[in-house]
Structure formats: structure tokens, C-alpha cells
């Protein structure tokens, strides 16, 4: 296993860890706004690390560009969705969580 394989392994495991942290945050956080926070971390950082790890393995720069495009689209989608849900919840008067 060369140095590239080791770097890919590290990136993939870090991405999987971020996805796991996002899912755990979705389960454990008490509030829609807090859960949004956990969710966007999983979307952006987790998928980004996995994409970078896979980009090191492809041998064609067009394929690497395609992976980058997928990550960019997910970034755009997740930012839009998070903003829309947070805006609707805040405007609709969903109460904020306070530490009891």
C-alpha cells in the first residue's frame, strides 16, 4: 500500500466519522435548530472528505471534476434546505430550546 492509499484510507474514515457524528446529533439533539446544525456538518464535511479521498484514486481528471461537481451540488442543496427549514420554523414560531 503506497502513500496515496494511506491518505485515501484516512480521508474515507474521517468522512465516515463525520457522517456518524451527524446521525448521532440528529438523534440526540433536542431541537430542530440544533439538529440542523448537526445535519449540515454531516452533509458538507463528511461528503467532502469522502469525495476528496475518492478523487485521489481516480486516474482521469474529468472523473475528479465530476466528483467535485457532485460535492458542490450537495453543498448547494444542503445549504438551501437548511436555510428554508430554519426560516420556516422561525417564522412559524417553533420555540427555541432553552437549557432547563
Amino acid at each position: 500500500m503506497g502513500i496515496i492509499e494511506w491518505v485515501t484510507t484516512i480521508f474515507l474514515l474521517a468522512g465516515a466519522f463525520f457522517f456518524f457524528a451527524g446521525t448521532l446529533g440528529l438523534l440526540r439533539f433536542p431541537d430542530v435548530y440544533n439538529r440542523l446544525h448537526a445535519l449540515t456538518k454531516a452533509d458538507n464535511v463528511g461528503l467532502g472528505l469522502i469525495t476528496i479521498g475518492l478523487m485521489l484514486q481516480v486516474d482521469n481528471w474529468v472523473l475528479a471534476l465530476k466528483l467535485l461537481l457532485i460535492w458542490f451540488l450537495v453543498l448547494l442543496t444542503s445549504a438551501t434546505a437548511a436555510h428554508l427549514i430554519a426560516n420556516a420554523a422561525l417564522r412559524g414560531g417553533l420555540p427555541l430550546w432553552r437549557r432547563p
Binding site: 468522512g15 446521525t23 439538529r35 440542523l36 445535519l39 454531516a42 452533509d43 461528503l47 450537495v74 444542503s78
Partner: peptide, 15 residues
Amino acid sequence: LAAQLFGTTGVAILL
């Protein structure tokens, strides 16, 4: 929100 997370995770699985 959970469905959105499933979509992103599905993208990662497919890649």
C-alpha cells in the same frame, strides 16, 4: 431533515 441526511448518505454510498 432525516430524509435529507439519507439523501446525502445515499450519495456517499453510491460514490
